[in-house]
Amino acid sequence: MAPVKLRGMTWDHRRAIDPLTYSLPQFRNRHPDIDIEWSSRPLAGFEFTSVDALAEDYDLIILDHPFMGAVSASGSLAPLDGIGGLSDDLFVGPSLATYRMKGSLWALPVDAAAQVAVSRPDLMQALDAEPPRNWSELISLGAKARRRSLSLAIGLSGVHSLMTFFTLMANLGTPCATTQEEPFADRPTARGALGLLRGLLEFCPREALDWNSIRLHDEMAARDDLVFCPAVYCYATYAEADQRRPLRFHDLPGPTGPTGSTIGGTGLAVSAKCRHREAAFDYVRFAAELATQRVFAEHHGQPAHRALWLDEAINQRFGGCYRNTLATMEACWVRPRYNGYLAFQEAAGGLVEAHLRGDLAEDALLDRLERLHAGR
């Protein structure tokens, strides 16, 4: 009898696809009657493609938690409430909680991330500099780097502008609204956060406004002038030894320290239209296991189990990434997840980027963000 075949979709990076494909032999050993074919798509598609549309064609879907409002309203995913042994304390930060909506769990965290800092240790050593602990020290580092014809770095293309704005707002103690019933942002705090971003850009190459999180890591590993980035969604694989210049990750140097970073990461979901739901649930149970997430980490992934963030062997493989960013991860802020938020996120990211390019005044930006958030 031919095995059940499930189709899965993730995003196109070795952090995403390699853990899934390299762990398949262990799954097949346990479930020889189930096979899985994984496909991938670019990061931009991962951030915005409708989960409802993916659920028409795929059984297993790797997705981001801001989709939870839409999927809980549409019923496009199968709730995972019957998957036993899942509790918040097993996972780092609010990773599991981000996938709960309207009383159900819609995805299992298989990858954990937040906006953290990243450095080029060789360039930091050349500057005789330590990783900054707050924004004031960051700007001092920028000035020191500029005197040596070096730069700070940031990735602010589209949605990444909005995520960094979110992080600064939360760090300053007045986070943006997570429901449409509240005003989007406290104006004085928003002005302060935008001012911090504009000040940072004075020490960054102009092309930083064209970079997403993957491009930011690629540029820092390839170029020899980018010293330090204060806030980017961590790709721990860039700290591995096979990189041209392995990067190092650090807690967020926000205005008040690591608190307030906007959580990212990904979850594993099952389509409500999956014709072999029990087989798909078997894979979810497999992916939830500590041993499986250890295999993920051994193949460039970012485990969501808290125990693995404390594991010495894994930290050694990734240059101490997890240990050095745990405080940030545990103090994360969860961005909005209401039904309709994804349309706001896509449009708002472009507006914040336009402001940082000098194409949209601060008052006009904040007015438009407020109207967009309210659905007007």
Rank of each mutant, 00 (worst) to 15 (best):
I61G: 04
V118Q: 11
K5E: 08
S140N: 09
Y283Q: 09
G257W: 03
R306P: 02
L152Q: 13
W106A: 03
Y22V: 03
Q293D: 13
V352Y: 03
D122I: 00
G349D: 15
L86V: 05
R100W: 10
D218T: 14
D18P: 01
L172I: 02
M1K: 15
L54Q: 15
A327M: 04
A313T: 14
M9I: 15
E47G: 05
W211S: 14
P303K: 03
L43E: 03
C321T: 15
L201F: 02
R317K: 09
G85W: 00
A73F: 01
T49Q: 12
A361K: 12
R223M: 06
F228R: 01
D111H: 12
L356A: 12
L86A: 12
A354Q: 15
S95R: 08
D359L: 10
E312N: 03
S23H: 14
I314F: 02
R30Y: 05
R285V: 02
T21Y: 04
G254R: 13
R28V: 12
G69F: 08
G358N: 06
P255C: 02
L168G: 12
S39I: 11
R275N: 02
S72W: 01
E312F: 06
G8D: 14
R28A: 15
Q345P: 04
M9F: 11
E202S: 03
T262S: 11
P25D: 05
L156H: 09
L90D: 02
G301W: 09
A117N: 06
T237D: 13
A177F: 00
A288L: 10
F344T: 04
T292A: 03
R41V: 15
E362W: 01
R191Y: 09
R133A: 10
A190K: 00
